[in-house]
Each structure stands twice: as structure tokens, then as C-alpha cells.
């Protein structure tokens, strides 16, 4: 998890630039805020997508997130902007999930509709069979994520899909490091069980790891 020194240095530069952008956004400079949007929209959209498993709703959530972030930028009290914006995102996702529980029909369509395009993870020398296999694995992982309680899903997605540190996850989820650890451990354990139920989907290099 430790970053190389040069990476940390460029991280500092980025954060200095980011502070300037945030300050400008506070003064109402939309261009500055949009620079922040461009920087974080990918991670925001992907978190929403993984939490909700529906591109359309995820896009709505992402748009809502940035709109409420702009409104509430004065409420941002320093720290990690990334964590702050992801916290807004996760709260918006929780809202949507609650809505879904109240009207369960709409989520089923999303499950069927939303198959990730294979081009997104195609590698050039993969045969059609391998692509099909990978696609099935993706769908299987996705189903597994959906089976997790929302809090565990958030922890797993932030940590393993998006590569956030425990500290950042704690900020996003507004909980302690210990809570992050246990949510992540339980979520991963569930995911492992789910994945191993269809171990044949795993690429040979993974299976080799498991057997070895």
C-alpha cells in the first residue's frame, strides 16, 4: 500500500493544486470546480455503478453528487477532497438503495440490462472463449457484490476495486479504522465464498494461485 517516494511527491503537488481549485470553487468559480469534477468523476461514477449496478442510476447519482458538492463546498472542512466527494456519493447511493427497497421492481431490470461491454476488459490476445469466460466471471463477481450488505460492499469496492487506503475508507464511511477492517474482512470472506462456488470461472493464473 505504501507509495513510492516520487509518487508521494507528485501527490503533494496534486494536493496543492487541488487546494487552489477548492478555494476557487468556494468563491464560485465554476471552471475550477469543474476541474475537480473532471478529476473525480470517474471514481465517483464507478463507485456509484458498483454500489447500484445500474449505469443510468449511477450517472444520476454522479450528477447529483457533484451538484450537491458544489452547493456544499463551503461545508468541506479540509482533509481529503476525494474522501469527501466519495462520502457524498456513498450517501446518495444509500438513498437510492433505500428507494429500491421500497420499490423493488425497478432494480431487476437493471440487473438484466446492464452487462458490461467485453471491450472494456478485452485484451488483444484473448480468444472468444476466454472473453466469454471473463465476461461470466465479471457477472459473477458483480452478483457477489450485490449480495453483500451495503456497508460491506462500500468497503470492498473502495478498497479492492478503487484501491483506497483504510484511512480514506474510514473517512468516506464515517467510521473507525477498526470498523473498516471488520467490514472489509467480512465482505471479502463473503466474496471469497461466492467466488469459490464457481472456481472454474477463475482464470488459470488465479486457480494456480489457489492450488499452489
Amino acid at each position: 500500500m505504501a507509495k513510492p517516494a516520487e509518487c508521494a511527491a507528485s501527490g503533494n503537488l496534486i494536493s496543492i493544486e487541488e487546494d487552489a481549485l477548492i478555494a476557487a470553487s468556494r468563491k464560485g468559480e465554476l471552471q475550477a470546480f469543474n476541474s475537480l469534477v473532471l478529476r473525480y468523476q470517474g471514481i465517483v461514477y464507478n463507485l456509484a455503478y458498483r454500489m447500484l449496478n445500474d449505469g443510468e442510476t449511477a450517472a444520476d447519482v454522479a450528477q447529483d453528487t457533484f451538484m450537491s458538492a458544489l452547493k456544499g463546498i463551503n461545508g468541506f472542512r479540509g482533509g481529503s477532497f476525494k474522501a469527501w466527494i466519495l462520502r457524498i456519493t456513498s450517501n446518495a447511493c444509500y438513498d437510492r438503495l433505500r428507494q429500491r427497497q421500497r420499490h423493488p421492481t425497478s432494480s431487476l431490470d437493471a440487473l438484466v440490462d446492464d452487462v458490461e461491454s467485453p471491450t472494456e476488459f478485452a485484451d488483444p490476445d484473448a480468444g472468444p472463449e476466454e472473453i466469454a469466460l471473463r465476461r461470466e466471471l465479471m457477472a459473477h463477481i458483480r452478483d457477489g457484490l450485490l449480495c453483500l450488505p451495503a456497508e460491506q460492499r462500500l468497503a470492498v469496492v473502495l478498497s479492492d476495486v478503487q484501491g483506497l487506503s483504510y484511512e480514506e475508507i474510514a473517512q468516506v464511511a464515517n467510521c473507525s479504522l477498526g470498523t473498516v477492517k471488520s467490514r472489509l474482512a467480512r465482505g471479502r470472506a463473503r466474496m471469497r465464498d461466492h467466488l469459490m462456488r464457481r472456481g472454474e470461472l477463475l482464470p488459470s493464473r488465479y486457480r494456480h494461485d489457489v492450488e499452489g
Partner: peptide, 17 residues
């Protein structure tokens, strides 16, 4: 590892305000 290998989902549009 499998989770890390999940593809990044392409955004349908930019969310710049």
C-alpha cells in the same frame, strides 16, 4: 485480485456542471 481486475466502467457522459 479478481476485484482489482474488475474493469473501470466508462462514463456515459461528463458530469462537469
Amino acid at each position: 485480485q479478481a476485484l482489482r481486475d474488475l474493469p473501470v466502467i466508462a462514463m456515459p457522459r461528463s458530469f462537469a456542471l
